[in-house]
């Protein structure tokens, strides 16, 4: 089959498709080709293809186990940030609402609050764990 005949068949096939037969589609593709032409001509479009390949390969490699690990880390970071952010925002609002700063005695008496003692224990416990991790074995 001659090259011209082959091209005619391809053109006929493409034009029989309703989407491709639409002038708006042809105009859109023309614009797309014009926009990508400099990238294609300078071989810079290859980087986009390579990037797509990397994304595609990673989707291919992503399995149940790696997904479980990454989402767990993601949730832990999110939960930590959310909890800390909420606490800071609420404490900030309470502090801004004060007419005058609490006195030393008032601050000391806060230690009677079990919630304060619980959070102090949390901070001391966190420091203990960090200290243990920093120890030279």
């Amino acid at each position: 089959m001659s090259e011209e005949k082959q091209l005619n068949i391809i053109e006929e096939k493409l034009m029989s498709d309703t989407a491709l037969n639409n002038p708006a589609t042809i105009e859109g593709i023309k614009n797309l080709i014009e926009k990508t032409a400099p990238l294609v001509q300078a071989c810079r479009f290859n980087h986009i293809i390579d990037l797509l390949s990397i994304i595609s390969d990673n989707i291919e490699f992503l399995d149940e186990a790696s997904l479980e690990k990454t989402t767990k880390v993601g949730e832990e970071i999110l939960a930590l940030g959310w909890t800390a952010g909420n606490a800071v925002r609420m404490a900030n609002a309470q502090t801004e609402a004060l007419e005058k700063p609490p006195g030393l005695f008032q601050l000391m008496s806060s230690l009677n609050d079990p919630d304060v003692r619980r959070s102090l224990h949390f901070f001391i416990g966190t420091m203990r764990i960090i200290g243990r991790q920093m120890k030279n074995d």
């Binding site: 767990k72 949730e75 999110l78």
Partner: peptide
């Protein structure tokens, strides 16, 4: 699709809890 499956698994393992928190 496989990508849809990964989206669902990501939702199950993490995004659900962000939804519950109203994030």
């Amino acid at each position: 699709t496989k990508l849809g499956g990964l989206m669902r698994k990501t939702f199950n393992r993490g995004i659900y809890w962000a939804v519950a928190r109203g994030i």
